[in-house]
């Protein structure tokens, strides 16, 4: 094969942009290993294309930037307490405690991140067919702890298919959640978790869409909770629950 002709045939561009057929891709990858000049040409093209496309950027605007950056940060935070957000907007002199809260959240998110990466690895192993199918030791210890009561939360009305389990530790007051089934919320709505205390529903936080199927600790569950429910609310959550939009309910 005349590799110079091949390089200038347009195949590099098609390969880099993912427009080749699978056979062309296989051939390309094989030739790439045999011909250093082809490898060099790909690297050069990729790098030039990146530079060029960065120069030709079209920007979505600050509002979209803020929304997406917030969403990306929220991926590291399983629950977003709505009270902290309100305090920031209304009372700036609360900045110190808020900063402390943010640091705390950051710590919590780093912790979860660490836990998640452990769990992701484990899930990856499971998928590969490793025989050792088990929860990470810490999760297993929580579930088998005798002081922990599982609270099944069941779908309400037309949402009968929804399922989730809370694990409630009476001794420490800690709670954990595992969402088994809950439809994806639209971009303009959020699921919010509530605890029933003295006959009133108190917000626990907005449920991050990404925690499905994971075992997650729920921070700040109010003492004296006797039941939990999940409602669908407007983005950012509500002060009082929209009871008509209750998806899940469970009593301790």
């Amino acid at each position: 094969m005349d590799i110079k002709n091949y390089i200038s045939s347009g195949i590099i561009e098609l390969y880099v942009m993912g427009l080749c057929s699978p056979e062309e891709e296989r051939e390309f990858e094989m030739l790439r290993q045999q011909h250093p000049e082809l490898h060099e040409a790909i690297l050069r093209y990729e790098s030039d294309m990146e530079k060029n496309m960065l120069q030709k950027g079209v920007f979505p605007g600050a509002e979209v930037d803020d929304k997406i950056l917030q969403r990306l940060e929220s991926l590291n935070t399983p629950f977003v307490p709505i009270k902290a957000g309100k305090a920031l907007v209304k009372k700036m002199y609360w900045l110190k405690p808020v900063a402390a809260a943010v640091l705390l959240l950051l710590g919590v998110s780093l912790f979860f991140n660490y836990q998640l990466s452990k769990k992701n690895k484990l899930q990856a192993e499971m998928i590969k067919g490793t025989k050792n199918i088990s929860l990470p030791l810490s999760d297993y210890a929580v579930i088998t702890n005798p002081s922990i009561t599982p609270v099944g939360m069941y779908g309400v009305g037309s949402h009968a298919i929804c399922r989730c389990t809370m694990f409630w530790d009476k001794k420490t007051g800690k709670a954990y959640i595992m969402i088994h089934h809950l439809p994806k919320s639209s971009s303009s709505r959020d699921y919010q978790l509530w605890a029933e205390v003295d006959g009133k529903l108190v917000s626990v936080g907005i449920i991050n869409d990404e925690i499905r199927g994971r075992f997650i600790e729920v921070p700040d569950v109010p003492a004296g909770a006797v039941a939990f429910s999940v409602t669908l609310e407007k983005t950012g959550g509500s002060i009082t629950p929209t009871v008509d939009e209750t998806y899940l309910k469970g009593r301790i």
Binding site: E50, M53, L54, G57, F59, P60, D65, I68, L69, L72
Partner: peptide
């Protein structure tokens, strides 16, 4: 992720 977004959002949005 903040860096990635700020660096590449324009090019990807264009696509």
């Amino acid at each position: 992720y903040r860096h990635l977004y700020m660096q590449y959002r324009g090019a990807l949005y264009n696509i």
